[in-house]
């Protein structure tokens, strides 16, 4: 899908975001995935979150970025985010310093996170928890545990 031209940000200028004292910076998200990522994290409303959409990136062209206060992502969340944005980077911040960097890897099984695109899959009944087996990670292939349909990256849809 051709992305709409984002508003030009003059070369060298930085978007002003307040520095993060404690929390997580998720960078190098595929442009357009930040809101999905927030949904994956399911954060409660009292946490302050800063989102950068469609930022210019030397490596990626455009990217999204998220700063979350007072929440350190856990491995399970990293794995889930990897599904929508495989090259995302995660920096855990304590007292303004990066104390840990996490890079995503996929779990063997993804439970209750994705919708099966097969309209005659038994999981179209909302009472059934979905489960997907990660078959390949190089060019991502998942298989629905129930209908056994192979799912490609572009078919992935979050619940």
């Amino acid at each position: 899908m051709p992305a709409e031209q984002p508003p030009r940000v003059p070369e060298g200028s930085k978007i002003k975001v307040s520095a993060l004292r404690e929390g997580t910076v998720i960078d190098h998200l595929v442009a357009g995935t930040a809101l999905k990522v927030l949904k994956i994290l399911g954060l409660d409303s009292d946490r302050s979150v800063t989102i950068g959409l469609n930022l210019e990136s030397k490596k990626m062209g455009h990217k999204d970025l998220i700063k979350i206060e007072r929440h350190e992502v856990i491995n399970e969340e990293v794995q889930k985010i990897a599904l929508v944005s495989p090259n995302a980077t995660f920096s855990i911040i304590r007292d303004f310093h990066v104390v840990q960097k996490l890079s995503p890897s996929l779990p063997e099984m993804i439970e209750n996170l994705l919708r099966c695109p097969n309209p005659s899959c038994v999981t179209t009944d909302d009472r059934v928890r979905t489960k997907f087996i990660v078959v390949r990670t190089d060019s991502l292939r998942l298989r629905c545990h129930y209908c056994e349909r192979t799912i490609r990256k572009d078919e992935i849809e979050l619940l």
Binding site: S120, C121, V122, T123, C144, Y146, E148
Partner: peptide, 25 residues
């Protein structure tokens, strides 16, 4: 008629389940 129905059924019972056809799966 639904794909995955036999798998789902097998997770709900202690008995062995035989799939006699689940949709096109």
């Amino acid at each position: 008629p639904f794909e995955g129905a036999a798998r789902l059924a097998s997770e709900s019972t202690r008995l062995p389940v035989i799939n006699a056809g689940d949709g096109t799966n």
